[in-house]
């Protein structure tokens, strides 16, 4: 799990992997584009796979470029909400609600 060497050997981004990824990311890829996409993604994986060999023993992951800590906001309530401006695209709303096709629980 910690190594990506094995990925260099063959095609990683096969149809099933792409299917899983498009499910998670809510995309749909037309059947006709899958071959090209899978080739490109494999090339990208090869490129990013180069980090595998980097000597990172003892290195901490760096999530932020600067060593700051989080500033905190006072618990003050501001009432400056303009629902009309926020809902300028009225095709997506009804009576101030956003609407989507009926969700089944």
């Amino acid at each position: 799990m910690d190594t990506i060497d094995s990925h260099h050997l063959g095609k990683i981004m096969d149809k099933n992997t792409i299917k899983k990824l498009t499910y998670l990311s809510k995309l749909s890829i037309p059947e006709s584009d899958i071959d090209e996409l899978s080739k490109n993604l494999d090339n990208i994986l090869k490129l990013i796979g180069e980090i595998d060999a980097a000597p990172t023993d003892g290195m901490l992951p760096m999530a932020h470029p600067l060593d700051f800590t989080q500033p905190l906001r006072d618990d003050v309530c501001r009432k400056n909400i303009n629902r009309d401006a926020n809902q300028h695209d009225s095709s997506k709303t009804k009576d101030g609600y956003y609407t989507v096709p009926k969700i089944l629980d």
């Binding site: 990506i4 990824l21 990311s25 993604l41 994986l45 990013i48 990172t56 999530a63």
Partner: peptide
């Protein structure tokens, strides 16, 4: 493409090898 690559790099089983590793390289 980038969304798919990013989703892959964060997904279970690959997070350590890609995302976490890349953040360590970033530190290097």
């Amino acid at each position: 493409r980038r969304i798919l690559v990013g989703t892959y790099a964060l997904s279970a089983g690959y997070y350590d090898a890609y995302y976490l590793k890349a953040q360590k390289v970033r530190n290097l």
